[in-house]
Amino acid sequence: MLLIDCPYCGKRPEIEFSYGGEAHIARPADPSALSDEEWATFLYVRTNPKGIHAERWRHSNGCGRFFNAVRDTVSDFFVTTYKSGEPRPDAKVGA
């Protein structure tokens, strides 16, 4: 089981958290201006990288707050976690 470092509560076991998908996908400011292609991309297309991935987690059985994490999807190693709204930190594999 993974240990996840909630920015508010500290390290807790994975089962206290819910996964929230890829991070930093902003909802378009003016959805009706988008083409169908662009809207489908926003809704469904994901980077799905083999390596460093910025993703959302929610400490659903803890403080209940959303935050972001950077994780290596090859090793599942958490590089860092940070609060929602903060910019994505630079991170490299093995960092």
């Binding site: 089981m1 994975e14 089962i15 993703e55 994780r71 090859v74």
Partner: peptide, 13 residues
């Protein structure tokens, strides 16, 4: 498992 991964393993729970 809940999260994107290429690790070919997951949590025991």
């Amino acid at each position: 498992d809940a999260y994107v991964s290429y690790s070919q393993r997951g949590g025991l729970h």
